[in-house]
Lab assay of single mutants.
Amino acid sequence: MAAAAAAGAGPEMVRGQVFDVGPRYTNLSYIGEGAYGMVCSAYDNVNKVRVAIKKISPFEHQTYCQRTLREIKILLRFRHENIIGINDIIRAPTIEQMKDVYIVQDLMETDLYKLLKTQHLSNDHICYFLYQILRGLKYIHSANVLHRDLKPSNLLLNTTCDLKICDFGLARVADPDHDHTGFLTEYVATRWYRAPEIMLNSKGYTKSIDIWSVGCILAEMLSNRPIFPGKHYLDQLNHILGILGSPSQEDLNCIINLKARNYLLSLPHKNKVPWNRLFPNADSKALDLLDKMLTFNPHKRIEVEQALAHPYLEQYYDPSDEPIAEAPFKFDMELDDLPKEKLKELIFEETARFQPGYRS
């Protein structure tokens, strides 16, 4: 834990890192770190609560700039109880001085990944967590956004079992017609939660990839272990087919990539493993919904509104309290091709509203 900075004593240090967030945020305490930044909790002297502050230093890398800009653009436009918001952003007053960006968010005690390492969940908890994931996802999908990296560590939890989806750095506007060349190379989302079509096709992607990830998360809540822990690309596919069985001819016809289709045709026939054999203690309604989410063919996979209306979630289902976005989200430009200098300018502009004396 960093010592509390005395008023006016300059930035606090946390594990050798400068955290320049005073005077409003003090009493910093280390939480963890990701690929390009550290997260601390801090005391907000204005709202009198502890908050989470993520320090991001992305400006050396085009990919990190892209992810940072995506996350900020999306989260500043989203407003939903099951999606983490941005409360404040701290950065230098000029673009030349801006080396880091500090993002202030609600402090959540833990995440689903940490929880599943230590606790076996009751059916009631599984049901409530799944409902909140789908409630947040309904809003995301209504904005025409794909999260693309749903996994237990991106689901934040607090002691009252509130759940918030975080990390929109890989999110995209849904565009089933656009052929994202190089899709697989830039697709760094965790393999275990990846839909089979991501490994088999490169053309376009749809909201059904997020539903697949939610199915993987439900299976993990039922058993405290990942359902498809593939060691590499082909191993991942083999794990999936080992449980779902061989795809039907109709399902194979959806695979545009001939090499991928021929690979699947070359494999020995596998039978589907019954879900109640894998999860003998699970609620039968939970397994019915799991089956509809972990469907090989993305066109037959359940959609988020149908999933919310499934009998497993009937005690929570309330369409009048499951809000959607006001308007579909649009990125003005494809960020993939922009140089990091341009992305830095866009991050600077996007964060201006939090600067003292800002006038829109």
Rank of each mutant, 00 (worst) to 15 (best):
P298F: 01
H299R: 10
A309W: 02
Q132G: 09
R79D: 03
M293E: 02
L287Y: 09
V188D: 14
I243Q: 05
Y102K: 07
N158T: 12
L218E: 11
L346M: 14
S320K: 07
D210K: 09
T63Y: 10
A5W: 13
P93S: 12
P328M: 07
G16K: 08
D88H: 09
I302T: 01
D179V: 15
I217T: 07
P226K: 00
L115D: 03
K259L: 08
R50E: 12
N27Q: 04
Y64A: 12
V145H: 05
E334L: 01
P247D: 01
N224K: 14
G8N: 06
H232A: 06
G8D: 02
T206G: 08
K164M: 10
E350M: 04
N144A: 03
Y205F: 14
R77Q: 13
D106R: 03
L241T: 06
H61A: 00
N201D: 09
A9N: 00
V173G: 09
Y193I: 09
A327D: 14
R24T: 01
L252A: 08
D251W: 02
I227D: 01
R148L: 15
K330L: 02
Q249E: 07
A52L: 06
G34Y: 01
Y312S: 04
P298V: 06
P152T: 13
S284A: 10
Y43N: 15
L258G: 09
L76S: 01
V188F: 14
K203N: 14
P311Q: 04
L137M: 09
V101D: 07
E303L: 00
S142C: 09
Y317L: 01
G215F: 08
I126R: 11
F348W: 08
T110G: 06
T118I: 09
S122H: 05
F19Q: 13
R15Y: 12
K270Q: 04
P176Y: 07
V39E: 15
H180I: 13
D288V: 14
N297D: 07
K300Q: 07
N224D: 09
C254F: 14
F78Y: 15
G32A: 04
H120E: 08
E33M: 00
D100I: 00
R277E: 09
W212A: 07
P319V: 11
L69V: 05
E303Y: 02
L69N: 03
L313M: 15
C254I: 10
K54H: 01
N253Q: 12
Q132Y: 06
L278D: 06
D179F: 06
D20R: 04
T63G: 05
R15A: 12
L76H: 01
Y113S: 08
I165S: 04
C40K: 03
K73M: 14
L222R: 07
A42D: 00
D291S: 03
F168Y: 14
T181L: 11
A171I: 02
I74Y: 05
S246W: 01
T110S: 15
E341L: 04
Y316G: 02
N47T: 11
N276C: 06
H120Y: 10
K300V: 07
W212D: 10
S246D: 00
I211K: 13
E96F: 06
K164G: 11
A6M: 12
V214C: 09
D162K: 01
K270R: 12
G169I: 00
G16D: 06
R301Q: 06
L163H: 05
H232Y: 02
N257P: 07
E109A: 04
S248I: 05
L200S: 13
C127A: 11
F59K: 06
T351D: 04
T295E: 11
C254E: 07
L121A: 07
L264A: 03
E71T: 00
S41W: 06
K164Y: 10
R277I: 15
W275Q: 08
M333D: 12
F329Q: 08
D288W: 04
D235K: 06
Y312F: 15
Y193C: 08
R225I: 03
M38W: 07
V188H: 05
K285I: 15
L115R: 00
I165D: 08
Q249T: 04
S213K: 05
Y128F: 15
Q119M: 07
E326L: 06
R67Y: 08
K342V: 04
S41E: 05
P152S: 12
F78L: 15
P229D: 03
L150P: 11
R191K: 11
F348H: 07
